[in-house]
């Protein structure tokens, strides 16, 4: 498994190939369309993060000291963002997820589009992923 930094660098490199917002959008949509489906048992309110314009269902679980995320959204674009986040964060140790700065979001020029659509719940989603990590991290320290 690559480190988070390595994965982030790869994403930034990929995005550097794109010419502008239109190509980035198309790529994120493509990622969203390929995101593996979330088990229906997690598509319930308990796992829902409600945004103003789209909702996200997020489930995380811990296996051997690492956290794994699965998620879905009613927006394909948000699913694409989920795919990027899962790529970076899923399978990483809880402590590292907790400290992740996720600088790639700025570097690939996504922040401005996310800021507009506060809406799309990406920041709530990151917060929720970190909450999972916080719980897992505390849990492992107690053991």
């Amino acid at each position: 498994m690559n480190t988070m930094q390595e994965i982030e660098d790869e994403i930034v490199e990929d995005f550097n190939l794109f010419d502008g917002w239109e190509e980035k959008y198309q790529y994120i949509i493509e990622l969203g369309q390929k995101l593996p489906a979330l088990d229906v048992k997690y598509k319930v309110d308990e796992y829902k993060i409600k945004g103003c314009q789209s909702s996200v269902w997020l489930h995380g679980e811990e296996r051997e000291g690492k956290l794994f995320f699965m998620a879905d959204s009613d927006s394909t674009f948000v699913k694409g963002e989920i795919a990027l986040l899962i790529n970076v964060l899923s399978g990483q140790p809880a402590d590292e997820i907790l400290n992740a700065k996720l600088e790639f979001i700025d570097k690939i020029g996504l922040r401005q589009h996310i800021a507009v659509t506060r809406a799309n719940g990406l920041s709530s989603m990151i917060k929720q992923m970190k909450t999972y990590a916080f719980a897992a991290s505390n849990h492992s320290k107690q053991i």
């Binding site: 917002w21 103003c52 314009q53 927006s75 674009f77």
Partner: peptide, 20 residues
């Protein structure tokens, strides 16, 4: 999803509003 379509239009320079 309305937001997805709105963002697509945005990539083409077309400004619409999406949401509630």
């Amino acid at each position: 999803n309305a937001m997805d379509a709105g963002m697509y239009l945005d990539t083409k320079g077309v400004a619409v509003r999406t949401g509630q």
